[in-house]
């Protein structure tokens, strides 16, 4: 009789003192690799399953290849209860990540993790990474990038092709003008510190480059993935120009999905994403 091999095991868990709801996906003990645990963060307010179930599929595929994966909901998102305190949403999410890692360390002895996030999830990952030595890697999908000089150049080139944009400029309703003025104001105003930070002003905050610098200085490996639709990203090298320290020492890998929308709605794109992440995790 041939025994049916179990490819992975999933366990529903409550993590941390806020009882965050999560799923731990594990390979069978015989296949378990001594590798960092992958922790997947929410995208916006979508619960841990992700769009098109992308985080469920990703968790299971990674577990089949020997990795433990945890996906969970921040407090107030998905199935996790909201907090009762006055902590800002951003600070609460960063605190939730720490609670989850503390729980994983205490209960499972896990002391190395790789954070994975799309959009706001990527931002949460990078904002947290430099504060905790347990984070050894980041998978950032469409993270926030600050506008660089070349970003504006490409942005203007694209916009010039449309007559409606000329009318907007002439009537003072141009998005570019708003963007540039916000950029300038943020240069003139005192630098945003982490306390005043939120995901809306992150793009112009000097704290964001500090986070990348801090993570890179600790040797955190990064995989940055960009889709075609990010309005904050107009050319392939933008991340390198925005965060030159992050790419130093070969710790940053860039991947592009020009055919994909922001949510990886196409199954082929999701399959390729899974392969890219697996390959990056296995590489040194």
């Amino acid at each position: 009789m041939v025994a049916l091999e179990i490819a992975y095991k999933e366990q529903a868990v409550l993590l941390g003192r806020h009882s965050l709801v999560g799923i731990v996906t594990r390979p069978p003990p015989a296949r378990q690799k001594d590798e960092p645990v992958v922790v997947i963060l929410n995208t916006g307010i979508v619960h841990r399953v992700g769009h098109h179930r992308m985080y469920v599929s990703l968790s299971r595929e990674l577990a089949k290849s020997g990795r433990t994966v945890v996906r969970f909901d921040f407090a107030g998102i998905g199935d996790s209860k909201p907090r009762n305190d006055s902590t800002s949403p951003l600070m609460a999410s960063l605190s939730d990540i720490r609670e989850v890692l503390d729980t994983l360390e205490k209960s499972h002895g896990i002391c190395k993790v790789i954070l994975v996030g799309l959009c706001s999830g990527a931002d949460h990952a990078v904002l947290y990474a430099h504060t905790d030595p347990r984070v050894v890697g980041l998978v950032l999908m469409d993270p926030t990038l600050p506008p660089t000089f070349r970003y504006y150049f490409h942005y203007v080139l694209q916009r010039l092709k449309n007559i409606r944009n000329w009318i907007s400029v002439a009537t003072g309703r141009s998005g570019l003008m708003r963007l540039a003025s916000t950029h300038l104001l943020n240069r003139v105003r005192p630098k945003a510190e982490v306390e005043g930070l939120n995901l809306q002003n992150l793009r112009f905050s000097s704290y964001l480059p500090q986070c990348y610098r801090g993570a890179a200085a600790r040797g955190v490996r990064m995989l940055a993935v960009f889709t075609s639709v990010s309005v904050r990203h107009t050319y392939e090298q933008q991340m390198l120009d925005a965060f030159p320290e992050a790419s130093a020492g070969g710790k940053l890998r860039l991947e592009f999905f020009p055919e994909s929308d922001h949510l990886f709605s196409g199954s082929k794109e999701r399959d390729r994403l899974r392969d890219v992440i697996s390959d990056w995790l296995d590489s040194r």
Binding site: E10, A12, V13, L14, V21, I23, D79, S80, K81
Partner: peptide, 17 residues
């Protein structure tokens, strides 16, 4: 809030009680 798996080994279903 209690997360749990219900159903059978062939059809494990995630639920919240």
């Amino acid at each position: 809030m209690n997360p749990l798996f219900i159903g059978t080994a062939e059809r494990r279903l995630f639920g919240l009680y």
